[in-house]
């Protein structure tokens, strides 16, 4: 199989994530879409690492995984605090600031 197919897959995943962030309304789902985008970048890193015969890309994906986990923790903490004070995790409800 042609290895560049993985690049197409990564691009497709990234686009799905990017569109999801824009159209979805639940903060948790929006956040899952962001994670999908990060994983798409990871797939691209690993594939390019294979194509270029260079290990750097695989190390990059390690770091991305760790950073993504930290981002999950911080993000969910913010979303849960938000939910506890409003009983809703919809991004549309968070509109006090748009005046």
């Amino acid at each position: 199989m042609d290895i560049s197919n993985y690049i197409y897959l990564s691009a497709i995943l990234f686009v799905i994530g990017a569109i999801g962030v824009v159209v979805r309304r639940n903060a948790i789902v929006v956040f899952m879409c962001v994670e999908l985008m990060l994983n798409a970048a990871n797939l691209a890193f690993v594939t390019f690492s294979r194509i270029n015969g260079d290990l750097g890309g695989q190390i990059a994906s390690f770091f991305t995984m760790v950073v993504a986990a930290c981002e999950v923790v911080v993000g969910l903490a913010i979303i849960v605090t938000m939910y506890r004070s409003r009983r809703s995790a919809s991004v549309d409800d968070a509109s006090l600031l748009q005046r």
């Binding site: 190390i59 390690f62 760790v66 986990a69 930290c70 999950v72 923790v73 969910l76 849960v80 506890r84």
Partner: peptide, 23 residues
């Protein structure tokens, strides 16, 4: 209950650090 969430978060954060021990 939210306490499951807290434990899960703590688990993820400490668990993922192991990744750096592999290289």
């Amino acid at each position: 209950p939210v306490k499951y969430f807290l434990t899960a978060m703590l688990f993820i954060v400490f668990d993922i650090e192991i990744v750096f021990l592999y290289p």
